[in-house]
Design a protein around this nucleic acid. Sequence first.
DNA 1: TTTGGCTACATCGTATTACTATGTAGTAGT
DNA 2: ACTACTACATAGTAATACGATGTAGCCAAA
Lengths: 107, 107
Amino acid sequence: MRISTELLKGVLEGVVLHQIDAGINYGYEITKTLRELGFDDLAEGTVYTILVRLEKNELVNVEKHKSEKGPMKKFYQLNDAGKTRLTLFWTHWDFLINKMAELRKED
Amino acid sequence: MRISTELLKGVLEGVVLHQIDAGINYGYEITKTLRELGFDDLAEGTVYTILVRLEKNELVNVEKHKSEKGPMKKFYQLNDAGKTRLTLFWTHWDFLINKMAELRKED
DNA sequence: TTTGGCTACATCGTATTACTATGTAGTAGT
DNA sequence: ACTACTACATAGTAATACGATGTAGCCAAA
């Protein structure tokens, strides 16, 4: 499904944080798993932009490892700040979907 | 609650469409009701920006009416395109929250 | 041996959007 | 006059997802 890209703003960062925390640690695979999950049109470039941002904001630790196939991989792991951010993201998300449900329920 | 503003992108347009459809037809009241509902920090300017956009994109019909207090009100109503957009918005929203739930569920 | 396909990362430019700040105006009560 | 409330308007800014494009390594088939 082709979700309006504006609706994804803010969401994708949380999603990427979640994937990293779940053990999906490098860009290419994050893109792949998310696409399989239903974010069909997710651009590869988008994920890398987010990863660069996470690194710049010091939410992740990064290591380079050799890949079995292809070039070096960059492995990401959440640091404490990253974990806090992830929890905060879900808090905000829950708040939002609750409010949206309330809104919709009224009359 | 102070939600990250990025998380609201795309959402707010849908929310405003919904309010208009629900009979809350002018900017000032839309802002007010949404604030009461929990979008505390929603800026008045934001709502007007959205309304201007909706008008420009021909999703609403507009009429001016005298106000009991204060200056003229601009009354908004969804036209067919607006209603279609609103349905589409909820479709996207439902899709998104389902995917997010799936994502979260995995391990 | 060269072509294509897959893995994997990187970045510039663009459009969209929510917010901040600020301004204009009308009405009513003190 | 002053304040408070209603009501709309907009210029400027920061953040972000995406499209396009490029680099690079590996492997298999032609």
